[in-house]
Amino acid sequence: MASLFDAAKACLDAATPEDKLARTAQAAADFADGKFATLEDEREPDPIRMPGRPERPRLVPPRDLPRRGFGSDEGRAAFIHAVAHIEFNAIDLAWDAVYRFRTFPAAYYADWIGVAADEARHFAMLRARLREFGHDYGDFDAHNGLWEMAEKTAHDALARMALVPRVLEARGLDVTPGMIVKLRSLGDDATADILEVILREEVGHVAAGSRWFRWCCELHGREPRATFAHLLAQYARPVLYGPFNLEARAEAGFDPEELAALLALDAEARERKP
């Protein structure tokens, strides 16, 4: 029987969207069918590196990405491409969470394999919509910010669970509702409908991060709120700002004290601005 961790690595290494989606679907199906011999592996995972990626899109610093409005078809295509790129990265983030951390209960692997399958489906929906605009994935430049956070947290599952789902992915909970409203105002219900699906399912993904972050804290005798605040200050202050979707974040496992702390951090950052 196959190894789950070998399957996860094959998904990470897949370089084309077609191969990554196919391998993700197969690995998720194999896991559901109980085809993996064991969920334990004494081998050390490989050092973290860039996962398999197509030659395009070209990766550039975020500041080098042009700002485009939604008003034109080209601007909307660029927006859809940006979200598709996030979802493509999220497939790798989920598989790396499976591959890299090998001492978790079966429910942990079930969660992140399910997330990988969801992200692959999101990417496929967005790519199909992008093609309706006469473009494809790779036609616009993109940045590598999501994977850079994976690299920073490769040494520590607790930090990974705190910072990738509960910070970077949770930003989608904050900003997506406004994007949906804007797209519907422009008559682009097709794209808005896709974002509605993504928003609904991303709540569950962030909730998985909350669940396993707290599991890690309990395992290591750490107080979750203080630990999360420390990690935010260490890694994520520049990317954490309001307004926050408090209702969605609460549904995704943020408790009232954490939400109050986020609001306080945002207020402090606004006061420092000239």
Rank of each mutant, 00 (worst) to 15 (best):
L93T: 03
A190R: 15
A124K: 14
G114A: 08
E258K: 02
A252M: 04
H135R: 15
T24M: 07
D141N: 12
A128I: 02
Q234M: 08
A110I: 07
A77F: 08
K20A: 03
V167G: 02
A77E: 14
G178V: 07
E74R: 15
D174M: 10
F123R: 10
F254A: 01
S3N: 05
H85A: 12
D92Q: 14
E223A: 07
R121F: 08
A120Q: 07
L231T: 00
F70M: 13
P54H: 12
G69A: 13
D64C: 05
G172M: 09
A260M: 04
D141Y: 06
V98M: 10
L265N: 01
G145D: 03
P47G: 04
A32Y: 03
A107M: 14
A117L: 11
G187L: 10
R121H: 11
G75R: 13
R100Q: 13
R270W: 10
G209C: 00
A14L: 05
P17H: 05
A2V: 09
D266P: 09
A159L: 08
L183I: 06
A82E: 14
R270F: 12
I113S: 02
F70D: 08
G209H: 00
E87P: 05
A110D: 12
I194M: 06
A8F: 03
F70R: 09
L126Q: 04
R200V: 01
E151H: 07
I180Q: 06
G69L: 09
R68F: 13
E42R: 12
L231C: 01
T24E: 06
H155G: 13
L173D: 02
H135L: 03
G242Y: 12
K182W: 04
R211T: 07
R68S: 10
F101S: 02
G138D: 01
R68E: 11
L130F: 01
Y99H: 11
A192P: 07
L21C: 08
A78I: 07
A107S: 15
R58G: 03
A7S: 14
E196V: 12
L263E: 15
A260N: 06
A229P: 00
E44V: 04
Q26H: 05
E169S: 06
M1K: 08
A157G: 06
W215P: 01
D266L: 05
V60E: 13
A250E: 14
A32I: 04
M125A: 13
L39G: 02
D156T: 06
R23F: 09
E148A: 09
D96W: 15
